[in-house]
Structures are given as structure tokens and as C-alpha cells.
Design a protein around this nucleic acid. Structure first.
Lengths: 195, 195
DNA sequence: AGACATTTTTAAACATTGTTTAAAATTTGA
DNA sequence: TCAAATTTTAAACAATGTTTAAAAATGTCT
């Protein structure tokens, strides 16, 4: 990688980090290219040197956060020192953590087929599938070991992830329910569904 | 109500009906005032005679659909000829029906606090609370009659409604899973959670 | 029916924001 | 230092929500 390429790569990363913060504050449509640029003392035009367009930038914000969450999940999934149940519990806690803390950017709500180009859409869906597969894997393991018991584990996983994703629609940082409480109670429900 | 008022009222209704169709097809941000107007052979400017702005129009689309769904729920909730369980089952089927068929407009996704004005926001949240209360009521009844058994029924209701709401994020009209299948399996999960 | 008041529609201007462009400024590397 | 490559900029442009003032349509009263 040449000097220039490395520099561009770093800059791109800085822009994404900046954009993630703003998107989580203002939402997708509330985020303007101008504000993202201003944060880094640039003009909005320069962003187009690094990103094809706004939806490309949003796409990359989403991808970064999703990949980060995937890393967290993978670490737990492969931790053989933990029981299957414990591993799923931690994965549930991680998912809820992201749904709450990276709410807007974690799963860019809105029909992705409207926001994204054909190729982007394919990649987003692929990333989401990969992400969900982590949950499928641990559930499958648990069925094998008889820790869990359910028909149609895929549908159940969709049910469970949906319930968690929706948290971002009502969670308020200083509301009645703390993140910890939500994690704990949601985990109880999920365990009940799986046994 | 004078003639003119009645006419304006009807026109408003026509516009809303038209907008609902378009929003369900194109999503919130994909819907332009121009397209809504064109559907009724008007120019976009005239819409502002009937609605304060786009978000006001969206708000009223959302309200209409939400109120319609509330009516459906109420009918079932009060139908004493059905067992508690059966009533909840029908309510679940109704909710999933709306989540699928009126996907985009049923619960206007996106932070309502960004889309709506102060007063609108208050009304939206109120409507949503009212809506959720129908589920709380039947669950409370079921707990009384020992049909159901759960601590913290409110949180559980949030879990359940969230799971159902998320369907709109992945449901495809000609996909692998039919509406009926989803309704049936989701109901199984919900029943498991409640007993 | 005709005249006046009210209601409704329109076209055009405007504001905001995403996007493109051509040129200027900066950086790199020999 | 100088030419080539990279990056930034300001300005123009496009799309779309919003406002406005005037025109058109409608309703009402005599």
C-alpha cells in the first residue's frame, strides 16, 4: 500500500467514525453530509472523494459496527470454557448492548432495498445473514447437547432477534428500564422459549 | 359542519388513503409530495391546503391505520364468547396481519421524535400506548384466570410486540414463509412465553 | 341568474440538502 | 526543486419540501 493509499484509508476511517456518532445522534435522514464534513473541518464536497454518495457512507458505517459486533459474538461463541447456555446469554447481552448503544447505526432501519444500491444491498443482507448465523450456530449446538429444545430454530431465532432489535424503538437512556434490566429479563424470556 | 367543511374533510381522507398506498410501496422517504398529489391529479402545492407539511400527512396516515387496527383488536378483546387464550391468539394474528400488509405505515419506523412535532409526537406515543394497552388488558385477564402466568407482563408484552413488529423488516410477499405460517408459529412462541 | 364572498388550486419562487465539476491547493517522490 | 498525483474547494446543479400571491372554482344570497 502506497503512502497515499494509506492516508486515504485512514481518512475514510475517520470520516466513518465521525458519521457513526452523528447518525446515532440524529438518525439517518437527520444526518447531513454537511454536518459530517464540518465535524472534520472539511466541506461536504470532499466527502465525495472518499465515498460514492451518502448511502455508501451509511452503508460503511453500518458494516463497521456490524463487523465489530460480529467479532464480539465470535469470541463468545468459540469460548469453550463457557457452557452453551452461558455463551448464548452473553451473545444476547452483546446484541442488546449494540441495539441500545449503537441504536441507529447498528441495524439501519428502513427498507435496505430503498436505501442501498444493488451491490450494497447484497452485501448488507449477507452481513446480516452472517450475523444471524452466529445465533443459529449456538442454538444448534444447544439442541445437540439437549440444552435447548425447539422445532424450527431459524424461525425462533428471527422471533428472538426481532424482539431485541425493537428495543431501539422505545429505549430511552434515562428511562425507567436500565440496559442491565432489559438484558436480564429478555434473557429469561429467551431461555424459556428455548427449553 | 358546513358544506365546505364536509368537502374538505372528504378530500383530506382521499389524500390520506392515497398516501397510505404510496408509503406502503415506497417507504417514508421514498414518498414525495408530488407523487401523492399526482395520484389525485393535483399539484403538490395544494396538499399544503389540507396538511401542514409532509410529516403531518404521514402522521395522519399512521394514525388512521393504527386506529383501524385498534378497532379490530377491541372487537376481539370484548368478545366474551371466546376464551382468553383464543382472544389473544386472534389479536396476535391481527397485529401480524397489519405488520405485514400495512408494513411501512403501521408503525412508522424511525425515531418519531425526529419526524414529528412536539404535539404530534405526544399523540403518536399516546396512540401507541393505547394500542399496547389492549394487549396488556387481555394478558392481565389471563393472569387472573390463570390462563397465563408471568412476572412483569409489561416487559413481556414489549418483547412480544417487538418480535412481531420486526417481521416487516424481513417479510417478503412471495418469500419462503407465508403470513399464515408466521402467525401460527409466532403464536406458539407467545403462548409458550405466557404459560 | 348575477354578484359577491369563500374556498380551492395553481404556478412560480424559495430553501435545504445531496451530487457533480472544474479548478485550485497540497502533497509526494525523484 | 519540479512535475505528477492526490486532495480540497467553491460553485453550480438537481431533487424535493415549503411558501406565496394570484387565479380559478364554488357556494350563497338576493
Amino acid at each position: 500500500m502506497t503512502m497515499a493509499e494509506r492516508k486515504a484509508f485512514n481518512k475514510r476511517e475517520k470520516i466513518i467514525k465521525s458519521a457513526i456518532k452523528i447518525v446515532n445522534r440524529r438518525g439517518y435522514s437527520g444526518t447531513t453530509m454537511e454536518e459530517v464534513a464540518a465535524e472534520l473541518l472539511m466541506t461536504k464536497g470532499s466527502l465525495y472523494y472518499y465515498f460514492k454518495n451518502k448511502s455508501d457512507l451509511m452503508f460503511q458505517c453500518n458494516s463497521i459496527v456490524l463487523l465489530e459486533a460480529q467479532e464480539d459474538l465470535k469470541r463468545v461463541l468459540l469460548d469453550e470454557s463457557l457452557s452453551i447456555k452461558k455463551r448464548l446469554q452473553e451473545m444476547v447481552f452483546i446484541h442488546i448492548h449494540y441495539a441500545i448503544e449503537e441504536n441507529e447505526v447498528f441495524n439501519l432501519i428502513m427498507r435496505p432495498e430503498q436505501l442501498f444500491s444493488e451491490e450494497q444491498l447484497e452485501e448488507v443482507l449477507h452481513l446480516r445473514d452472517e450475523y444471524a448465523a452466529f445465533f443459529d450456530k449456538i442454538i444448534a449446538k444447544g439442541i445437540e447437547t439437549k440444552d435447548f429444545n425447539t422445532e424450527d430454530p431459524i424461525m425462533l431465532r428471527m422471533f428472538i432477534l426481532g424482539a431485541m432489535n425493537w428495543i431501539q424503538q422505545w429505549y430511552k437512556p434515562n428511562g425507567r428500564l436500565s440496559k442491565k434490566e432489559i438484558q436480564q429479563r429478555f434473557w429469561n424470556y429467551i431461555l424459556k422459549l428455548l427449553t
